[in-house]
Write a protein that binds this DNA or RNA. Structure first.
Lengths: 187, 187
DNA sequence: TTGACGAAACCGTCCAACTGGTATGTTATG
DNA sequence: CATAACATACCAGTTGGACGGTTTCGTCAA
């Protein structure tokens, strides 16, 4: 039959839309809610359309994860450009990038949530492992002190606490925390 | 019909078994692999049996999460008993407990993995939030410095890195890390 | 000591809804 | 008009869970 696909063709937009919906579902209702039907339905796209852009569910998840990593990379690079001191620069960049992504107005502020949910899928952890390994090798000269490692770990902790909604701090407490972390990177 | 249920009644053991299997499945194959069929099958228990112990899938997951929290509490309390210095005692307990659970020979060493996977389910995050809030209120007198918060966050980071398999450190590097963290709790 | 009896532990089956995925369209756009 | 961007229909397998049955076990009267 034939009444209803007069949709305008907007491949990039639709693809973006699908990823965003998948992210929202993941963060709001958990991994088990991310199904092809749910994603396509909530995007106003048919399942066929979804599977045209992402040939399988795994591909969809991997694409989503990759887009998050890209955003993280971009944020880190931006933060590092504004930092004149080489020693500990990557660690500070990582810290500020994670904080910045959280407060980003555009896109989903669920960055942390989504990442977490995605990391619960074993086959996506591999990608993260590689990401970490590459960075730690690249910045071994400037960011390998014990204190730097602690700051990076604490950053992950903030990211985690953020997503879990535990540790609700006021603005000033958080500022003191960040100040102290930055101080540690400079020792 | 009637050939095959001559199983001895061992309610506690079977219940335990079901939880362990669920944990193993979660850590090895991710949340999507934790299905009633999979859990009951791998436990040598029928699905009916499983649903007798845990009236729904959510109840199963909640029970699993609770059992992990209990183990964490026990480990923290044990670590705190061996610590004579009040200031920062809870934070050190938290740190050492998390490290100890990782190296536990008995049970599953997948404690971190399972927790992570479970936390990807939104309705279980609430429980974690409550856990954190209770503790942070209880130990506000001794563990509310900025450095203590950093140590706790870094502990979460270690826990995270551990489960993701990133940051593979050798024994001595880890020891220096822990030493420095303990030092921070004493400032 | 026994044995009846009810509850708890466990089993096997069935089902409707949903799962990821295929196959085959139809339409827009260069 | 060729190809990419969608839609529609359909499928085989899986899902959570309802349901009614069977077996074990503690208890308590006789």
């Amino acid at each position: 039959m034939s009444t209803a696909h007069h949709r305008k063709k907007q491949p990039v937009f639709v693809r973006q839309q699908l990823l965003e919906v998948a992210a929202r579902l993941a963060s709001e209702k958990g991994m088990t809610a991310v199904t092809l039907d749910a994603v396509s339905g909530a995007s106003g796209v048919s399942k066929g359309g979804l599977l045209h852009h992402f040939p399988s569910k795994n591909m969809l998840l991997e694409a989503l994860f990759d887009s998050l990593l890209e955003r993280l990379d971009a944020a880190i690079e931006e933060a590092m450009r504004a930092d004149p001191l080489p020693h500990g620069r990557f660690t500070r960049g990582y810290l500020h990038a994670c904080l910045a992504l959280r407060d980003q107005p555009q896109g989903n502020k669920d960055w942390a949530q989504v990442t977490m949910v995605l990391l619960s899928e074993p086959h996506l952890r591999q990608r993260w492992r590689e990401w970490v390994r590459e960075r730690s090798e690249e910045y071994v000269g400037t960011d390998s002190s014990v204190d730097a490692a602690i700051v990076r770990l604490a950053t992950d902790g903030i990211w985690l606490a953020d997503l879990l909604g535990s540790h609700d701090m006021d603005q000033s407490a958080r500022q003191r925390l960040v100040d102290r972390l930055v101080e540690l990177t400079q020792l």
